[in-house]
Amino acid sequence: KLPPGWEKRMFANGTVYYFNHITNASQFERPSG
Rank of each mutant, 00 (worst) to 15 (best):
K1N: 14
K1S: 14
K1A: 15
K1L: 14
K1I: 14
K1R: 12
K1M: 14
L2T: 03
L2H: 02
L2I: 05
L2P: 11
L2R: 01
P3H: 04
P3W: 04
P3C: 05
P3Y: 03
P3V: 02
P3K: 03
P3I: 03
P3L: 05
P3A: 06
P3D: 06
P4Y: 14
P4L: 11
P4M: 10
P4G: 08
P4S: 10
P4V: 09
P4I: 11
P4K: 10
P4W: 12
G5R: 03
G5N: 10
G5S: 05
G5K: 02
W6V: 01
W6P: 00
W6I: 00
W6S: 00
E7P: 00
E7S: 07
E7D: 06
E7R: 04
E7W: 03
E7T: 08
K8W: 08
K8V: 15
K8N: 04
K8F: 09
K8Q: 15
R9H: 09
R9I: 09
R9M: 11
R9G: 05
R9Y: 08
R9T: 06
R9L: 11
M10T: 14
M10V: 15
M10L: 11
M10P: 04
M10W: 12
M10G: 05
F11E: 14
F11C: 06
F11A: 14
F11T: 15
F11N: 15
F11R: 09
F11L: 15
A12W: 08
A12S: 12
A12V: 09
A12P: 15
A12R: 08
N13R: 01
N13F: 02
N13V: 03
N13S: 08
N13T: 06
N13K: 02
N13I: 02
G14W: 03
G14F: 03
T15G: 09
T15I: 13
T15Q: 14
T15E: 12
T15A: 10
T15K: 12
T15M: 12
V16Y: 12
V16Q: 06
V16R: 03
V16N: 03
V16W: 10
Y17D: 04
Y17K: 03
Y17S: 02
Y17L: 06
Y17R: 01
Y17V: 07
Y18Q: 00
Y18L: 00
Y18W: 08
Y18M: 01
Y18N: 00
Y18D: 00
Y18K: 00
F19R: 02
F19D: 01
F19N: 01
F19V: 07
F19P: 01
F19M: 03
F19S: 01
F19T: 03
N20E: 02
N20H: 05
N20Q: 03
N20K: 01
N20L: 02
N20R: 00
N20W: 02
N20P: 00
H21T: 15
H21S: 14
H21M: 12
H21P: 10
I22K: 07
I22M: 11
I22S: 07
I22W: 09
I22L: 12
I22R: 06
I22N: 10
I22Q: 09
T23R: 02
T23Y: 06
T23V: 04
T23I: 05
N24G: 15
N24D: 06
N24E: 09
A25V: 15
A25I: 14
A25M: 14
A25P: 00
A25Q: 15
A25E: 15
A25G: 07
A25S: 11
A25H: 13
S26F: 14
S26G: 07
S26L: 14
S26W: 15
S26V: 15
Q27L: 06
Q27P: 01
Q27Y: 05
Q27F: 05
Q27D: 03
F28A: 09
F28R: 09
F28K: 09
F28E: 08
F28D: 07
F28N: 08
F28H: 08
E29A: 08
E29N: 09
R30T: 08
R30H: 14
R30S: 09
R30M: 12
R30D: 11
R30I: 13
R30E: 11
P31H: 01
P31A: 01
P31N: 01
P31Y: 01
S32I: 12
S32N: 12
S32V: 13
S32F: 11
S32Q: 13
S32W: 12
S32Y: 13
S32R: 10
S32A: 12
S32P: 11
G33P: 12
G33Y: 14
G33I: 14
G33N: 12
G33K: 10
G33W: 15
